[in-house]
Nucleic acid binder design. Sequence first.
RNA 1: GGCGGCGUAGCUCAGUUGGUUAGAGCGAGGGUCUCAUAAUCCCUAGGUCACUGGUUCGACUCCAGUCGCCGCCA
Length: 517
Amino acid sequence: MERFYVTTPIYYINAEPHLGHTYTMVVADTLARFYRAKGVETFVVTGTDEHGDKIAAIAAAHGENPKLYADRMSPLFQQAWQECGFLVDQFVRTTDPRHEQLVQEFLQRVYDNGDIYFSRYAGLYCTGCERFLTEKELVGGNCPDHKRPPEPIEEENYFFRMTRYLPAVQQYFEAHPDAIYPEHYRNEVLAMLASGGIGDLCISRPKTRLDWGIELPFDRRYVCYVWFDALISYVSGLKMRGDDTFHAFWPTAHHVMAKDILKPHAIFWPSMLLALRLPLFRRLLIHGYWVRGEAKMSKSLGNVIRPLDMKQQFGIDTLRYFLLREMAFGQDASFNEDAFAARANADLANGLGNLASRVLSMQQRYFDGQVQPLDPPTAADDDLQGAFAQALVEVPEWTEQLAFHRALEALWRALDHANKYVVDTAPFTLARERQQLPRVGGILHRLLECLYTTATLLAWFLPETSQKIFSLLGVTAPVRLPTSLGWGEHFPIGHRVQPPITLFPRIDLQKEATPRA
RNA sequence: GGCGGCGUAGCUCAGUUGGUUAGAGCGAGGGUCUCAUAAUCCCUAGGUCACUGGUUCGACUCCAGUCGCCGCCA
């Protein structure tokens, strides 16, 4: 059986879920639903990253111990994703004993293989970044990201002999051109590897400075550095379901993430896997940032859009549609209310929503909701069917290539065609003459088929809407993504469809803006 | 500083291996129908394709340089 394993990063619990997290989730969810529709067995892992200096500091600032803070924050993510309806097979918390045990087991294994050594290190440490900075990285003596001076620290630590594995990592990426997508990021990784500037990785923190982390099994005076801990969640998430699950899914691993954490995933992680004698992941899928004005959408800079607020105000599918339609996967995109409302109104309310509404309304008005036989097709009928046949081919193709915006664009070309078909064939005019009713019935039957195919192709993009349309049509969704339209086979003659509902209310920003008090 | 990318209509972008009047969507303006969520559908945008040189019969599309923006690395 074919399988597909997709992960998101485990999210750092220093802030609430924001738009960037939500986009990553939407992508992972869309991919999982797509492969599922194709009959592929899927597994999704996400979670929360709960260790590290920063968490300890935030918890202390709240007067809490870190574990309690984590126990309070982690569910915010879990619940948000659940309310958004994202498929999640395993939610990993790095404070879960099963995860901690695996991290220790892996550390021990790497240590036993001689890939971990002890050494003194002096440097400038930024608690915001949770890493040492070089002098050259500083801007005016400050960390460029956190705008404050790092602390000079000298200490003894454990190091992972990453340099030993870098040549093999490089070979792997050269031999597997699609392992990092988009290609732009693959080139960056290859450049990084070729530069020779990558050293071994410090994987410990002395407890004297920080004790909120997983203890090193071979030296209890130290805890594990966050990346070594966090990356292993991709394995522990599967192992929590048993070794069979791990063996079945691991070779198909697709890691979705934003571009800021490319390096740990493309350099540290494959090195760790090689040191652990585990197969490498299948692909890294790198997306860009949602920018709003000048500042990037980041947890430390505020500027947050809360997913649950968006869902409550506009519905999860409207948010999904905007995110998937507006961002070319891999590139940055901008988020603002005007673009959001424009997109939603033009494509969802006026396009898809109105089409469903007018078709179901006519079916109700002229035939009491009962589906009529197809009549012999005209040229216009053939064109319409051709448009949807093309969508049936293009939408899955673009999805497979992660070009979600193109996939949706392709589907909307067909929908636009359907709206035009209504005007061209004018069933509402024909219906005035009794002898034309068979033709009206044939036209409406075809339009119902348009909605059927649309719902089929929306299953992984807008699952809620897809279900709503099938339910309005009074039929069940196909079990498997069909390879041909099958028009004429979905509605028995006399089958009754439902009267229209408003799938997507038009968004009026001025109205939305007022009741803020 | 090194490597790489980008700069096309008000906005977001397409523009394949160089070739007749440079395209789409949205927004805006005008019109139409009336089944529909005042939605649909039709018409309308005259933009030095950043700038300057070069190659060519001919370049938005190739080359060099300039300016501006950005990414990665140092």
